[in-house]
């Protein structure tokens, strides 16, 4: 895996942005990050390997990379080391006139991580890009709250009803995992709550 080179100093905001870009482009890294973020007891490397069924080398490399780039931290001084994810909430607006910046949060990273073993999410990213998946997540959040229908999403994103319905189905669990107590018809917040 070709990750960006970790900074030699304490990661600042730009370093963390670059490391988040690594996550967005690397489903395995995204899966490991998500596992750390979702597991209450900070897991050991062995536990990560067992839970995700990944190779030992991949796990060691990925955990080192996550800690080097400020996306995770080691929570024990002695072996076996335990790891914890550092929360990500990155606002992205290329153009300052853009009304609603994208928020890159663990929900999007989780969706990308699942593309490693979910062929529908993987194909959706192939067709629509990571940005397209970010858009679809916004619709999935609204759909779970009853604020959009499959047909409306299909029209607005120029999808078939089948494609819209398929990605809504695949993203449902992710939305419910990260928004377990979502409020129906909650209109609060102006940002895309990814």
């Amino acid at each position: 895996m070709a990750y960006s080179v970790p900074p030699q100093h304490e990661p600042n905001a730009v370093d963390r942005m670059i490391s988040v870009v690594d996550l967005l482009g690397t489903p395995t890294l995204a899966r490991i990050y998500t596992y750390l973020a979702r597991t209450a007891e900070d897991p050991t490397t062995e536990e990560v390997i067992d839970a995700l069924g990944i190779a030992q080398t991949t796990a060691y490399e990925s955990l080192n990379h996550l800690t080097d780039t400020g996306l995770a931290e080691q929570t024990t001084e002695t072996r076996p080391y335990r790891y914890r994810a550092i929360p990500v909430d990155l606002q992205v607006a290329i153009d300052s006139t853009e009304a609603t910046p994208y928020a890159i949060t663990p929900m999007l990273i989780d969706a990308i991580g699942r593309s490693a073993d979910n062929e529908n999410i993987a194909l959706y990213i192939d067709r629509n890009g990571i940005g397209g998946l970010a858009d679809a997540l916004i619709y999935a959040i609204d759909h779970t709250a009853g604020r959009v229908t499959t047909q409306i999403m299909a029209r607005e994103l120029d999808h078939s009803v089948l494609e819209a319905g398929t990605i809504l189905t695949e993203l449902r669990d992710i939305v419910r995992t990260w928004q377990p107590e979502h409020v129906e018809n909650d209109d609060a917040g102006s940002e895309h709550p990814l």
């Binding site: 529908n120 194909l123 192939d126 078939s160 089948l162 494609e163 398929t166």
Partner: peptide, 19 residues
């Protein structure tokens, strides 16, 4: 019609493309 729509026709397909 929605369920049998093949307008997305592509070499690769979603697992739901042929319901």
């Amino acid at each position: 019609e929605e369920l049998t729509d093949r307008s997305d026709g592509d070499e690769t397909e979603y697992t739901t493309s042929t319901l």
